[in-house]
Computed example of a mutant assay.
Amino acid sequence: MFDAAVFGSLFLTLFVIMDPPGITPIFLALTSGRPAKVQRKMAWQAAAVALGVITVFGLVGNQILAYLHIDVPALMIAGGLLLLLIALDLLTGKMEEPKQTKDVNVALVPLGMPLLAGPGAIVQVILAVQNHDTFSGQVAVWTAILAMHIVLWLVMRYSLLIIRVIKDGGVVLVTRLAGMMLSALAVQQIINGVTQVIHGA
């Protein structure tokens, strides 16, 4: 049976972290001057690279943590602090937009990673895979991951149209709202991590 609650929770979390509306102007800046056909190809490549990175960490993230002797509460606190920094950047409008480079496939770096498959998204996926170990939970988790990357691909694929519809002001508004939601999520994750440390002590 499909766990809709797990799907919805992870999808919304990844949506806030990966911020499809906020990635639109960055994608346009990085791919400007290229033919529309090339832009569409780069949108697909960026989403595919991000999905590949997220999938690897989702499958072997726990083994990596075990090898490095990192406990989940420590990962939650570190991830929460990292998310909080990202949220503050979104709220203050200080997110750095990488400059266009003609000689590098920007769909791979920095679009695919770390802008899309960043540390915040990786942490959330590792925790989601670990916390929902039932069959229905795993199906919901991986469906949410796939659905999020399809959304990212569609947003980048039709970014020119999106910009014309919501304008620059709309992108700024959505980015600020995402920053506010992400900051609350980050603080909650830090609280959860600290609580687990205290209870485990």
Rank of each mutant, 00 (worst) to 15 (best):
M1Y: 12
F2H: 08
D3G: 01
D3Y: 05
A4E: 00
A4I: 15
A5E: 12
G8A: 13
F11W: 02
F11K: 05
L12W: 10
T13F: 04
T13N: 04
F15Y: 12
F15V: 04
D19Q: 02
P21C: 08
T24F: 01
P25Q: 06
F27E: 05
S32N: 13
S32W: 03
S32I: 05
R34M: 15
R34H: 07
P35R: 05
P35E: 01
P35G: 01
A36P: 09
K37V: 14
Q39A: 10
Q39W: 10
R40E: 12
A46V: 00
A47K: 04
A48V: 15
V49T: 13
A50D: 01
L51W: 01
V53P: 01
F57R: 04
G58W: 08
L59Y: 11
V60I: 15
G61K: 05
G61I: 07
L68T: 11
H69V: 11
H69A: 13
I70H: 01
I70Y: 12
D71C: 06
D71N: 15
D71S: 15
V72T: 12
P73L: 01
A74C: 06
M76F: 10
A78C: 07
G79F: 03
G80M: 01
L82T: 14
L82H: 00
L83I: 06
L84R: 10
L84S: 11
L85I: 15
I86N: 07
A87C: 03
L88F: 14
L91F: 11
G93N: 09
K94L: 08
E97D: 08
P98S: 09
P98F: 02
T101M: 12
T101R: 14
V106G: 01
L108P: 02
P110A: 10
P110N: 03
P114N: 02
L115Q: 02
L116G: 04
A117D: 03
V123M: 06
Q124R: 03
I126N: 04
L127N: 07
A128P: 09
V129M: 12
N131D: 15
N131P: 04
N131M: 11
D133P: 11
T134Q: 11
F135D: 13
F135S: 13
S136D: 14
G137K: 02
V139Y: 10
T143W: 09
I145K: 07
I145Y: 03
I145G: 10
A147Y: 10
A147H: 06
V151I: 15
V151L: 15
L152S: 07
L152Y: 07
L154K: 10
M156C: 03
Y158D: 09
L160V: 11
L161S: 14
L161G: 09
I163A: 14
R164M: 00
V165P: 04
V165Y: 10
K167C: 04
G169D: 12
G170I: 10
G170V: 05
V171A: 00
L173G: 09
L173W: 06
L173K: 07
V174W: 06
R176V: 08
G179R: 03
M181D: 00
A186D: 10
A186E: 06
V187N: 08
V187A: 13
I190C: 10
I190P: 00
I190A: 06
V194E: 05
T195R: 11
I198E: 11
I198V: 15
H199R: 14
